[in-house]
Design a protein around this nucleic acid. Sequence first.
DNA 1: TATCTCTTGCACCGATGAGTGCACTATCTT
DNA 2: AAGATAGTGCACTCATCGGTGCAAGAGATA
Lengths: 226, 226
Amino acid sequence: MSEGFSAQHPPLRIPAGPRDRGPDPRTLRTRAAVAEAARTLFLRNGYQGTGVDEIAALAQVSKRSIYNNFGDKESLFTELVLGFTGTAGQFAEQLVAGLTEAEDLPQELHALGRRHLATVARPEVLRLRRLIILEASRFPALADEYYRRAPGRVIAALTEAFALLHVRGALRAPNPRRAAEHFSYLVLGSTLDTFLFAPEGELPGPEELDTIADDGVSAFLAAYRA
Amino acid sequence: MSEGFSAQHPPLRIPAGPRDRGPDPRTLRTRAAVAEAARTLFLRNGYQGTGVDEIAALAQVSKRSIYNNFGDKESLFTELVLGFTGTAGQFAEQLVAGLTEAEDLPQELHALGRRHLATVARPEVLRLRRLIILEASRFPALADEYYRRAPGRVIAALTEAFALLHVRGALRAPNPRRAAEHFSYLVLGSTLDTFLFAPEGELPGPEELDTIADDGVSAFLAAYRA
DNA sequence: TATCTCTTGCACCGATGAGTGCACTATCTT
DNA sequence: AAGATAGTGCACTCATCGGTGCAAGAGATA
């Protein structure tokens, strides 16, 4: 497969013993170990760069068990990445929550910017993002899903908030969607970009990140404050 | 090799016949055909995704000739990509030229933004950028070189210009480097990003691109105008 | 024409890596 | 304790792919 990740192998074997008593503990243990190992290796070396034998070795599990539990390498990959993606997308709403009720909008936006950058500028997140970009040709649907759930969701939430703030006159954002994009790229742009080209390079420290975020938000405010 | 692209195979066989009369026309023809084919395939399918036999077939050249002319696959790749990179970086200075002498700075910046986005938002450029990101782990030095020569050079040129404009009071950019980054990401951010996740997707049309650029530049001006 | 050089075609090597078959063992469940 | 179910180890298949060897032919040069 290469055009989707619907279930043709059991995506998760919840059906258990003959009379439901929960899944076999052995299965659980195996799946968990494989997932953990695969996660590490895929994130570090990509899809092509990771061998099934390698995963088996790191998980201390037989190669056969991997195939028994996950079908094949592609299924394993998509299942894992979708899992990460799910959790990655969850913070979106929460991130923007409260923005429209803020008394001090600038201050709230600065806090938001810092939170946002701090959340995104972590090795695991950046690696996931990079991994998905790397495999976007092989797994276009996956890339799409990720984009919708993670960065897309943040943009959407920001767009909504900015639209409201515009109506209220707290912000001058006649094109709230564009404003949301501007906000995102002002805050995240350079950090994300740099990492793509130098995945082994060091990330800016926390203070540096805060400065970057602050500068981005300040520029945004200067441009969009009513 | 994996840590550089210095010559250990003749990077270009300029030395010719016993008493210089220019290189053998056969060699030239072969090299050109291979370069053209490799360019197409690498850009479309990446390094891993492109087989040497495939290149030979497309170039209508024997596999052996590829090895005779380029040494090995890695050399072929780096030689090509460095070539593109060179030309990609040339427009940087030219792009920013004249900015500091502009009478109408906003207008000049808008023109610059449009040119910049139009230059970057072409399939070949985006594909090259993507290719380099894809292979940044395998060829870190290459990624570095590209970054320095292309986006880095634009940022550097903008930084210089903004610094001058700040001193003159035409712009309020106490941190010109940051301002340059903001300018770049405001104008290019969303387009570049979208393409990374959907390399097969359609690009915005020229008018749409101009709108994006204009919005970015307007935001920049609102934030940084003195 | 004679010679030198590059290209060709094709078989071949060696490594890697996904996925399978199978007999055996370990662990649950009843 | 007995039978089902899952995991193990290992050898093995098959395909892909980078790279090589070589003898013969085509083209360039003198």
